[in-house]
Design a protein around this nucleic acid. Structure first.
Lengths: 227, 227
DNA sequence: CTTAAATTTTAGACACGTCTAAAAAATAGT
DNA sequence: ACTATTTTTTAGACGTGTCTAAAATTTAAG
């Protein structure tokens, strides 16, 4: 990441990060209301910030037309994501936090400004490729290392088998549920049956069989064996 | 450290920390101008902040009479100092930063809010008692562990011998100078001569003899042998 | 003890990031 | 195509933390 002459406020960084996250999952132009909801703020505040970040050439934005990141904005977003995920690895691997406990702390740590710190942390952690939830960690240039095949469990066929490669890290409750059923990254799972009437799935795990609602299954990502 | 209901802004924390540092070294009531200079800001800004922190019951302050920390304010100051010094140990011991490089980064990390993080970091580091400059690290209750005898080199007699226990970590330049002459915590030193006309000292180190100005000698702290 | 100098506080301003309420533009329904 | 509704932006406000300039207070000097 090249260093920016003007360093951003935490608030600005949070907007950039949210826009990046939304443009990864949803359509490529982000609406003001969607962003407002994600940031737990009001649309008018969002408009102000979009204007400011556009002035700084981090966003493409036209009135009433939604926004998207410029290459410069994307670079910054990736640097924040990189820091967030590296700190999560640190918290879990070195300080024995659970994967359900690290998000909030990493939200603070991701704003620490020091490229050198980030790079040395990465080395100290042994150049991890994914964070504790299986999300990939971009390198110093903002490039992801050959992303492994990751398919939502909900989108797999009956009879598919695979290894859990990632989970959505939205809520601690969800992650705590996964703890309780002993599902981790690396767990082997097999889809025994897909129940058409409610979209839930019967899953064979190492030691038992479990039923996942569609919502849960959509948040678990596996690498299927030989497709 | 008990958790405060109202969490402070970084700016408020920086004031608290500065007031603590000044009340350790200087007299016990801190003047507005002194604080303004230390914070690189204007006296009027300081007055505003003193008022605010007094409302929060972290300072004792009366108009024109200077300020000091309340027990509550002192507890917060110690928690910030604790975090700062633990992160410095992390940066030096785990990420191979030099003792002259860590201050700025630790100034950011000290504001991270999570008692659990601080305590786990402390355990991960092996419960260090001092930071890389020899400054003591308070425990979770804000108590310092039996501070070792530390005397300024400048205040020792000719013929005194001892081990370097700490250095003032004000400026990177000073620390880099110490790097250059290979003076570290744990180095053995002996005062060969004190030159009365300029206050400088002739010092014997492990491999050579060196001359310190009074200013330098005042910033190096040793534990003298059997006094 | 009275004035001069230094320090400290107040008053008024500004940038930031947020809000509410009202206006403007886009979208949908008929 | 013309309302009605939703979305988005503007306008004006507020709290934080800062500033400058002016007023108040304390300290120092004669």
């Amino acid at each position: 990441m090249q260093l920016e002459k003007r360093q951003l406020s935490q608030s600005e960084e949070n907007y950039i990060k949210a826009i990046y996250a939304l443009s990864e999952t949803c359509e490529d132009t982000i609406s003001t209301n969607l962003l407002a909801e994600r940031m737990s703020t009001k649309a008018s505040s969002v408009t102000d910030m979009l204007r400011k970040l556009t002035d700084k050439e981090l966003l493409t934005y036209q009135k009433y037309q939604g926004c998207g990141l410029t290459p410069k904005g994307r670079t910054i977003a990736l640097s924040i994501v990189r820091k967030h995920r590296l700190w999560e690895v640190f918290l879990v691997d070195k300080l024995q936090f659970g994967w359900d406990e690290v998000h909030e702390i990493a939200e603070q740590l991701e704003h620490i400004q020091s490229t050198q710190l980030t790079n040395r942390l990465e080395a100290f952690l042994g150049y991890p490729k994914v964070d504790p939830h299986g999300d990939p960690i971009p390198n110093d240039e903002g490039v992801f290392d050959t992303p492994a095949v990751r398919v939502s469990l909900a989108s797999c066929e009956t009879g598919s088998k695979g290894i859990v490669m990632g989970v959505e890290d939205g809520s601690p409750e969800f992650l705590q549920y996964l703890n309780k059923i002993d599902l981790k990254l690396g767990s082997e799972v097999e889809i025994l049956e897909k129940l058409s009437f409610d979209g839930s799935l019967l899953i064979a795990m190492e030691k038992r069989t479990i039923q996942f609602s569609h919502v849960v299954a959509a948040r678990i990502f596996i690498q299927p064996y030989q497709s």
